[in-house]
Design a protein around this nucleic acid. Structure first.
Length: 427
RNA sequence: GGCGCGGUGGCAGAGCGGUUGAAUGCACCGGUCUUGAAAACCGGCGGGCCCGUGAGGGUCUCGUGAGUUCGAAUCUCACCCGCGCCGCCA
């Protein structure tokens, strides 16, 4: 959530910043929120005035009554005034709720470094690794995976529906190996604390990180219990500290979690649905950092580098994209996408998104810290990065590692975790 | 799922419907003392919002929401959460 108090003195500046997203609807939400805020403040002043009078009058009333004076007339007058106040308070609540609902729909301000424009303005800031050349056209991962017995997408569809992959035998082992490899890297070399969060989250949590109210359609919901299946472990992990005031000495906090993620992918049916490119359920190791505001830019560079390390250890060619203002996610101010090269698909696939949310999530989730002991609490900054998402990593491993004989060579870093250096077709 | 008890400030823990934003202790901050530290003593010390350049003033906040009342942390109702016992299940 943006800071409406900071915006109030000069809404034009904020409006210009938001305009960089090229999102007319967002600007409209912003304008409406500012409008409602002004009306809210006018009613608030009136309500507070009446409450002050009421409080004072009640004090006097109590004194007179105790002194044994006749208070009948005064009591009636105060009763009438209480009714006036009550109706005004209802107006106030209405404006507050309306104002907040619009404010919750306003995205974060893009970082000054983010390029202007939409996705076509995304900037490649670096590439790593060199794509192999193939003598014959490289095969897509779904052919390789089925031939190697790694997954059985038809049966996954039978069990749940399309987009719910079933990993089998060596494929399941590969998934488990990836999880252990990534968790070990982040916990032992990058200093993260491993957590296993709840996989369903309540509404407050989903609002805290920005999934609600705007992206309700993207979430699976357990309606009876008003719980949502996590679309990313960013949600439960960031919300661990919701409504808390953190000790400055504890910052930065660095947590990693291995969880499945569930996404309805509403509106993207028929797009990239082949194989493992876009699925409703997938595993991911996530990195979350919580830090002091002045540290967040450096923390962003750090968390991005840590996600890159995963891909480097897996010897997978990738590029780093700095997202343009218009392509940056709702809650994010600045995002780097890590895209893996998939030779079988002849394309780049996003395997990680490393974002700084500045105080946007902290404000929604009310996560603060005391800069010094005894000082006023301030909002922290939150960041996260996939470190990394599994399906597209598996795609890259298969498509980059494929050999002419139909086998797939595994990266050395994975060998101890998967128990073999090569995946071979079943005899 | 049933019955019982309970949710108060960073923590612990008081609180006859009327200066109770809330006793007290701990923690924390500032100071005195000390060569230094500890102890002791003195003072300060929740958060949000609005107005104000500032000093400061106002308002809300005792799980959440509604209600009773001139006035609610205190009374009523609903909901949420926690604990205990029973039932059910692993």
């Amino acid at each position: 959530m943006i800071d409406i108090r900071a915006v109030r003195p000069d809404p034009g500046v904020a409006r210009a910043a938001l305009a960089r997203r090229g999102d007319e609807a967002a600007l409209a939400q912003f304008d409406r929120a500012m409008e409602l805020d002004a009306r809210r403040l006018a009613v608030l002043a009136e309500v507070e005035q009446l409450r002050a009078e009421r409080n004072e009058a009640s004090r006097v009333f109590g004194q007179r009554k105790q002194a044994g004076e006749d208070v009948g007339g005064l009591q009636q007058e105060l009763g009438e005034r209480a009714a006036t106040l009550k109706s005004l308070e209802e107006d106030l609540r209405e404006f507050e709720a309306l104002c907040e609902s619009h404010l919750l729909a306003v995205p974060n301000f893009p970082h000054r470094a983010a390029p202007d424009g939409d996705a076509s303005a995304n900037r490649v800031v670096r590439t790593w690794g060199t794509p192999r050349s193939f003598d014959t056209p490289p095969r897509p991962h779904w052919e390789l995976g089925e031939a190697l017995g790694l997954f059985d997408l038809a049966r996954g569809t039978k069990v749940a529906g399309s987009g719910f992959p079933l990993f089998t035998g060596p494929g399941a082992r590969l998934v488990r190996g990836l999880a252990n490899f990534m968790l070990d890297l982040h916990t032992t070399e990058h200093g993260y604390t491993e957590v296993q969060p709840p996989l369903l989250v309540n509404e407050a949590s989903a609002r805290g990180t920005g999934q609600l109210p705007k992206f309700q359609d993207d979430l699976y919901m357990a309606e009876r219990d008003a719980l949502y299946l996590l679309p990313t472990s960013e949600v439960p992990v960031t919300n661990i500290y919701r409504d808390e005031i953190l000790d400055a000495a504890a910052l930065p906090i660095a947590m990693t979690a291995y969880t499945p993620c569930f996404r309805r992918e509403a509106g993207s049916h028929g797009k990239d649905t082949r194989g493992l490119i876009r699925v409703h359920q997938f595993d991911k190791v996530e990195l979350v950092r919580i830090c002091r505001p002045e540290d967040s830019e450096a923390q962003h560079a750090l968390i991005t580098a840590q996600a890159e390390t995963v891909l480097q250890r897996l010897e997978l060619p990738y590029r780093v994209l700095e997202l343009a203002a218009g392509d940056t996610g709702f809650a994010s101010a600045h995002t780097y996408d890590l895209e893996l090269w998939a030779p079988g698909l002849d394309t780049w696939l996003e395997a990680s998104s490393a974002s700084t949310f500045t105080d946007f999530q902290a404000r929604r989730a009310n996560i603060r810290y005391r800069p010094t002991p005894g000082a006023k609490p301030e909002f922290v900054h939150t960041l996260n990065a996939s470190g990394v998402a599994f399906p597209r990593t598996i795609i890259a491993i298969l498509e980059n590692g494929q050999e002419a004989d139909g086998s797939v060579r595994l990266p050395a870093a994975l060998v101890p975790y998967v128990g073999t250096d090569r995946l071979v077709p079943a005899a």
